[in-house]
Amino acid sequence: MNAPEPFAGVISHTPVRHHILSVLVENKAGVLARIAGLFARRGFNIYSLAVAPSEGHARFSRVTIVVDAESAPLEQIVGQLDKLVNVVSITDLAPKDALERELLLASIDLDDESRGAVLDAVAGAGAAIVDVDAGRVTAMLAGTPGACDAFERSLEIFAGVELHRTGRVALPRLGRTVSERAES
């Protein structure tokens, strides 16, 4: 019998139905471990996670978690997360209500043959060249997750691609009133 595929585990690659949780936490040692541990032991899937100090307070950080709402009911994820004592507040953003952005950095091999195509791909995606070397170039794209996905796919044909993405950050979309958002 062939060995079965290893279980993919907590990091999911294709969130079918994702939600964005913007979580304000106390800036204390171990907070990230508490969140990660909770997701692991409850079997909730994290698609991406971004952490940074929040709104000028040294006391709080904002964690933006993209969760796979197929892996567990969102109500469960939010309810369990809210029980972590260091979690101060949770804002749940449905994708249609969220302005999502992500940063992508990619280093790509350049030679005489590929140069034109690489630079076309970078320009076509609206990315910027932020670092160059004799045989290599680093491009940066800040954009929607979809734009980052498209840029990532467009680089697949090139050699020596090293690519990092930050995971999403998000804020509620403007232009709709709060009550409208609550009703939807």
Binding site: A29, G30, A33, G37, V85
Partner: peptide, 14 residues
């Protein structure tokens, strides 16, 4: 021990 008991305490302090 705070790491070990993270998932089995309501909260812990170091």
């Amino acid at each position: 021990i705070t790491g070990i008991t993270m998932g089995i305490t309501k909260h812990n302090f170091l």
